[in-house]
Design a protein around this nucleic acid. Structure first.
Lengths: 207, 207
DNA sequence: TTCGAAGTTGACACTCCGTCATTGTATCGC
DNA sequence: GCGATACAATGACGGAGTGTCAACTTCGAA
């Protein structure tokens, strides 16, 4: 073990580095392929062809096409959650939180769609209601609402329903805003914020 | 040609009857298979195995697995649209319309989920944002809103955004309501109606 | 330097799809 | 009734994708 080399490049063994690089290469290739062909059309072989690896190697890293996709998606969710959390921490009041959160979400949707090259017209925002990362988003939003209620800045309403309603609304609204050229992030955010705040005001309080 | 038989069973030729029966058998089998295995896992062969037909015959009736699914889904949409339309025609005012429409939609979701044996926990209501019948629902809702605006019973807001927001909200809220036991149709409808009405009240008017 | 563990490779077996030449049969003209 | 004809059913088949695995290569510890 040469100490100089060690200091210059204090990395793990060649093996580890190769593994990390391979995984990264597959993810990178997958992102491109999904963008070009879409999830359905893309094949595992298409993905691996975008790397220097052999087909079998793919399965050392991911169990299936779905799993790479999940990995890419999780990546997105992981990037998004701290933003949502920050919005919550920085917000002056409930109204401000809603506004910040919605803008963050719409920016996120736009970024996701662009990253994957999904045609805007496809009307299918990336975060689905039945994926793990959607559940993460749901939990985050719900927590934010419960927190706001606990601190007395939001009225005492059904947090589960409100979180569901907000996410659903944001989802569809996100798709609608992506269909406009240019993507109407500002307009949709303003609309959504007004809608949510008015909606919350109109809601019956819990027992 | 015996006239008695003709009067008793004034049906088309044997050919026509057989075709109709086959189509029906495939649809029936498909419904069961989709319910049991889910859309992804189910194969065309699984479906055809549920009938007395050969694999090739499937393609005389549907071009693909997707097309049978669409046929089943369209069936649902066709049943739903008149209900929504009726809600619109019978409603006393905008508030009443919203309430009726939401209840109709939630009942529809519940029925769909039950009909397809989809586990309630799956959190994926049948009507997606990217299917033809979802677009039909969207158009219906949007028309209703535009109509209400034209008649002056609703404020002049962005109908596209409002329709998107309402549908998204109803979608997720529908899933959330289906997760409660028993399905909380009344509660969710009341929640949604209050939310939408409050939301609309809070919305900025269009130029 | 050597050797075992870890990783890579691509051929292979399997599954599913959609097609099509062949076979079967209802309908129609005579 | 009896062919002739058109229409539908059949299932074997070619094409494509998937995931596996035995053989092979490479790394790094001793």
């Amino acid at each position: 073990m040469t100490e100089a080399a060690d200091l210059l490049a204090p990395q793990e063994g060649k093996r580890e580095r190769a593994k990390a690089a391979n995984r990264e290469a597959i993810l990178e290739a997958a992102k491109k392929v999904f963008a070009q062909l879409g999830y359905e059309t893309a094949t595992v072989r298409d993905i691996i062809r975008g790397t220097e690896l052999a087909s079998g190697t793919f399965y050392n890293y991911f169990r299936s096409k779905e799993e790479v996709f999940e990995a890419l998606a999780d990546d997105g969710a992981r990037r998004f959650r701290p933003i949502l959390r920050a919005a919550r921490d920085q917000a002056a009041d409930f109204e401000d939180y809603i506004r910040r959160a919605l803008i963050a979400y719409f920016m996120f949707l736009r970024a996701e769609n662009q990253a994957e090259g999904r045609p805007v017209s496809e009307r299918r925002p990336h975060v689905h209601a039945d994926t793990p990362q959607a559940i993460a988003v749901y939990n985050e939003v719900r927590e934010g609402i419960e927190d706001a209620i606990a601190r007395g800045v939001a009225p005492n309403v059904d947090a589960d329903y409100l979180a569901s309603a907000c996410i659903g609304m944001a989802q569809e609204l996100g798709a609608a805003m992506l269909e406009r050229t240019p993507p109407d992030v500002e307009g949709a955010s303003a609309f959504a914020a007004a809608f949510v705040l008015g909606g919350v005001a109109g809601l019956p309080r819990k027992s």
